[in-house]
């Protein structure tokens, strides 16, 4: 089973990268852009076949390593 983890900064956390990208987009003439936030996508191949078990396993990985609970949220997507 394949899992995809989307990691984003928690809404209250400053995102310097997102801010700089937003500024550059405006500079390039793209108008009406706001709220740019940058995140990460991590893909994993799992041997686990049970969906619930896989989700709980990835959940555990997120808590322990993949996401930094100090400032990040995560979303898990199971694909096939």
């Amino acid at each position: 089973m394949k899992a995809r983890v989307h990691i984003t900064l928690r809404p209250s956390i400053l995102d310097p990268q997102g801010n700089a990208i937003e500024g550059a987009l405006t500079g390039l003439g793209f108008e009406g852009v706001s709220g740019v936030r940058q995140g990460k996508v991590i893909e994993l191949e799992l041997t686990e076949t049970d969906e619930a078990a896989a989700r709980s396993k990835v959940e555990d990985m997120c808590k322990k390593l993949l996401a930094n609970p100090v400032m990040e949220n995560y979303e898990i997507e199971l694909v096939g």
Partner: peptide
């Protein structure tokens, strides 16, 4: 440039 955010040199490469 631009904090090296997004990719190093990416935003500077597109500056006027």
């Amino acid at each position: 440039s631009y904090g090296d955010y997004l990719r190093s040199g990416a935003m500077a490469g597109r500056s006027p």
